[in-house]
Structures are given as C-alpha cells and as structure tokens.
Amino acid sequence: KYKEAKESFQRFLENHEKMTSTTRYKKAEQMFGEMEVWNAISERDRLEIYEDVL
C-alpha cells in the first residue's frame, strides 16, 4: 500500500499542470500540503521522488 502511495505521488507530480522544473519543493508543499496524496508518504520519500521527477 505504501508503494502505491509513492507511485501515486510520482504520477501526481508528473501530471500536475502547476509543476514545472522551476517549482521549488517548499512552494509545492504550500500548494499541495493539505492533500492526501502529499501526506500519504514520509517527507524523506516525498523529497526523493520530487527530486527524481524534476
């Protein structure tokens, strides 16, 4: 289930129109921090996936 959450988060970042190569992690956290997809995984994993996607 956790792996699915990580994959969902990656797809979310890859497909969200507001995500560009210039979007900083903290800005994304402000935009999406309340969303379930954002909070479903640990911050360490979130940051790792974020850096992989951008």
Rank of each mutant, 00 (worst) to 15 (best):
K1H: 15
Y2C: 01
Y2D: 11
Y2G: 06
Y2W: 01
K3R: 07
K3E: 04
K3V: 04
E4H: 11
E4T: 07
E4D: 08
A5S: 12
A5E: 09
A5G: 07
A5I: 02
A5T: 07
A5M: 08
K6L: 11
K6P: 02
K6N: 03
K6M: 12
E7V: 13
E7L: 13
E7R: 10
E7N: 09
S8C: 14
S8E: 14
F9V: 02
F9K: 01
Q10H: 05
Q10W: 09
Q10M: 13
Q10E: 03
Q10P: 02
Q10T: 01
Q10S: 08
R11M: 10
F12V: 04
F12E: 08
L13I: 08
L13W: 01
L13F: 02
L13K: 05
L13Y: 02
L13G: 05
L13T: 03
E14W: 06
E14C: 11
E14L: 14
H16C: 15
H16Q: 12
K18E: 13
K18T: 09
K18M: 08
K18G: 11
K18D: 14
K18H: 12
M19S: 01
T20S: 10
T20I: 09
T20R: 08
T20G: 13
S21W: 08
S21K: 13
S21F: 06
T22W: 10
T22P: 08
T22C: 12
T23M: 13
T23D: 04
T23H: 04
T23F: 12
R24M: 15
R24V: 14
R24D: 15
R24I: 12
Y25W: 01
Y25E: 01
K26W: 09
K27L: 12
A28K: 05
A28Y: 01
A28C: 13
E29Q: 08
E29V: 02
E29A: 05
E29H: 00
E29F: 01
Q30F: 03
Q30D: 11
Q30E: 15
M31Y: 04
F32M: 02
F32E: 03
G33M: 06
G33R: 06
E34C: 05
E34I: 01
E34K: 14
M35R: 09
M35C: 10
M35H: 06
M35D: 08
E36C: 04
E36G: 04
E36Q: 09
V37D: 15
V37S: 00
V37Q: 04
W38K: 10
W38S: 08
N39R: 11
N39P: 00
N39S: 06
A40M: 10
A40D: 04
A40R: 11
A40S: 12
A40H: 02
A40L: 02
I41G: 06
I41T: 04
S42F: 03
S42T: 14
S42Q: 08
E43P: 08
E43N: 08
E43T: 06
E43V: 04
E43A: 04
E43G: 06
R44W: 07
R44F: 13
R44H: 14
D45V: 00
D45F: 00
D45I: 00
D45W: 00
D45S: 05
R46I: 02
R46P: 02
R46N: 11
L47W: 09
L47E: 11
E48M: 14
E48S: 13
I49G: 03
I49N: 03
I49D: 07
Y50A: 06
Y50N: 04
E51L: 05
E51M: 09
D52F: 05
D52Q: 15
D52C: 08
D52E: 15
D52I: 00
D52N: 15
V53K: 08
